[in-house]
């Protein structure tokens, strides 16, 4: 199934290659469960492109973050997007960082991507991975110590388990069959609601424990397609000085608070912040709360309609309910 889509993807790219500057997609990484982004600039490299549930990265940041892949006048850059990634592209267009006519969007419906750490947890030890194949909703891993079969659902990223937009919301071409979401839209913020039912102490304890692991590598910030001011982030700047370099919970909390607040009403819940965290901190959870609020107050979801202005980027004196 994946090889078929990969084949179709490569054929599509082959066809559009003469008209585009480059194609941003995915290629195999250092083993079969680790895929990495690739920028294809010549025909000879098209065969590198792959699509499968290990294609975890949201590639839209490469369109805007310096040194960005920018097309010459009159040309376009092609980008492969999953459902969640397509919302980032729309959000970037909404905020004026990107022009729709500069990009060619290759949409790929996605039934969920794999959290490699969850796979490793199932294998229970680090091991050389020889082969990995996903078939009929199960992952089969052949590794140095043997073979393991795992139901796909058990190793999907958290973001994927709560995905309601598995199909690209914007695209120039779609490759693969439309898929159905994992959950119903009204259940989107069930986790947030459940968490909010906990006592303040419990909630505080949860964040103290998880955030204390933060090493301030800023991967969450830099992987976010919308954190476009990453190089001038208040977290590293000394003037004005808001966050100190002390590795205390207070400073860590402040950074994550700033990060989340700067994304209020902008975050499309692509979950990259959480996926890239080397310390496995569920940082998207903070943004989920903000999005739940945005939805409740403004009936707004980021990255769906490129004609809308994000609520916190506009000012309406007649706004009610705030």
């Amino acid at each position: 199934m994946w090889s078929e889509i990969t084949k179709k993807l490569q054929e599509t790219v082959q066809n559009i290659m003469p008209q585009v500057e480059a194609v941003i997609g995915w290629e195999r990484g250092f083993n079969e469960i680790r895929i990495k982004p690739v920028v294809i600039k010549k025909e000879g490299d098209i065969s590198k492109l792959v699509w499968n549930p290990f294609c975890v990265q949201n590639l839209s940041g490469y369109l805007v973050k310096s040194p960005a892949v920018i097309p010459r006048e009159g040309r376009r850059v092609a980008i492969c997007v999953k459902g969640c990634d397509s919302r980032s592209v729309t959000a970037l267009i909404q905020e004026g960082f990107l022009k729709r006519d500069q990009i060619f969007i290759i949409g790929i419906p996605c039934s969920g991507t794999v959290d490699w750490r969850k796979v490793m947890k199932r294998l229970e030890r680090s091991s050389v991975i020889h082969r990995a194949e996903i078939k009929d909703g199960r992952l089969m891993v052949e590794h140095a110590e043997g073979v393991e079969e795992i139901p796909l659902r058990e190793i999907l990223l958290r973001r994927c388990l709560r995905c309601v937009y598995p199909n690209p919301t914007v695209s120039d071409v779609v490759i693969g069959e439309t898929v159905s979401p994992h959950i119903e839209k009204e259940d989107l913020y069930k986790d947030v609601e459940a968490f909010e039912r906990k006592s303040l102490d419990e909630r505080r304890k949860f964040w103290a424990e998880t955030l204390s692991r933060c090493i301030r590598c800023y991967a969450c910030r830099n992987a976010c397609p919308l954190c476009i001011c990453q190089d001038w982030c208040i977290a590293e700047r000394r003037d004005p000085k808001w966050v100190t370099q002390k590795p205390t919970l207070k400073d860590i909390l402040l950074f994550h608070g700033i990060h989340a607040l700067h994304l209020a009403g902008r975050c499309t819940e692509c979950g990259e912040c959480e996926r890239v965290c080397p310390m496995e901190i569920p940082v998207m959870f903070i943004k989920e709360k903000l999005n739940e609020t945005t939805l409740r107050l403004f009936s707004y979801e980021a990255g769906i309609d490129s004609n809308l202005v994000p609520p916190l980027l506009t000012f309406n004196p007649h706004e009610t309910g705030i």
């Binding site: 982004p37 973050k65 090493i215 590598c217 800023y218 991967a219 830099n222 990453q230 080397p278």
Partner: peptide, 11 residues
């Protein structure tokens, strides 16, 4: 080209 400029590798 695909680097995110984050500090994971160094940390």
């Amino acid at each position: 080209e695909s680097c995110l400029s984050c500090g994971v590798c160094t940390y």
